[in-house]
Design a protein around this nucleic acid. Structure first.
Lengths: 177, 177
DNA sequence: GAAGATTGAAACGTCAATCTTA
DNA sequence: TAAGATTGACGTTTCAATCTTC
């Protein structure tokens, strides 16, 4: 068996990863798999929300009118429109979001955060942000935070050369929230 | 609404993320969501395998005897034992893996890569590695590769302080495969 | 009893088909 | 006709309960 493995290695050597890349790859895969699980766990235990649901509510809460078109929200949440539709239906059933057709263009549907939904985000946010700090930023130096930003953007560009990296227009990211 | 937002910001200011951290966070979330989708897409199209299934087959293929206990394999794949059990059942039905109780300790179950399974990995590997190169390493400088490794390890340590970071013993990572 | 592993039901995501409005 | 959005069916993951072996 080792011999066969060598053959495979030799045949495809040019395409394999270097040892340094392998180390980075293993580390990256671990984060990609474990971070969502860890964050989902905290949110689910403490607030009964999935990561994705929180992202939807949080995205709406940062809009000046707590409103976003479904397709804009889909971009913001990095999810498909179909998935978003299912999730918003559940959030609507729980009373945190409501949907209305756009008065100006009937093809658009506005997802709107309700007052109850706002309270839910306000309740859930501190614990979630604390988890993000604990799992990510407390473990990194300021230089690493910048490195992470640049690396993340480069990888996203490689995956989606055409899509803009910036969050949805209107998001109040500059506010420090 | 903006006023309320300010109140929330002020009340929880100490726990929010800094602007630099927000940028990094958005970039990281994007990678965490999009990279699995991109890799899953390539594998599914070209080889009919999910990322997780490939990881299982690949993990076994790197063992000297193509064998790993179920619980070891679960650690290696960053997945739950339950999920692994379901997946291995499907892989067994497709003839790529078989399961046998450990002769020395009947509680352990060995997952063993079959010859057909080996061929499957050999067929799927080049395309998958090429995708990893294209989406990740072609976009990064050698310095960034090292940074990514360190950042990834730090985050994993923060998530799981107790679990070892190294791959499963016996994995032939040092071989360049 | 506890570790290792499996199972079934419920929840979720994905895909293709559908519906609606411009 | 095409863009925006929804729906239902199917496959997968998760969670709790179960089974087996030490």
């Amino acid at each position: 068996v080792p011999e066969e493995l060598d053959e495979v290695c030799a045949a495809e050597a040019a395409r394999w990863l270097t040892p340094a890349e392998q180390e980075a790859w293993i580390a990256l895969v671990g984060v990609v798999v474990k971070l969502p699980t860890a964050l989902d766990g905290q949110l689910l235990r403490d607030s009964g929300l999935s990561n994705f649901e929180y992202f939807v509510l949080s995205g709406l809460s940062h809009q000046p009118d707590r409103t976003l078109r479904m397709s804009e929200l889909a971009v913001f949440t990095n999810g498909s429109l179909s998935r978003l539709s299912h999730v918003v239906k559940r959030l609507e059933a729980r009373g945190w979001v409501r949907r209305e057709p756009c008065p100006e263009n009937g093809r658009f549907i506005h997802a709107i955060l309700t007052d109850t939904g706002w309270e839910k985000v306000v309740e859930a946010a501190p614990g979630h942000v604390a988890a993000v700090r604990r799992f990510v930023f407390d473990a990194l130096t300021p230089e690493q935070v910048e490195q992470l930003r640049d690396i993340g953007r480069s990888i996203q560009l490689a995956i989606e050369p055409n899509r803009p990296l910036a969050p949805v227009p209107g998001a109040r990211e500059d506010r420090g929230c």
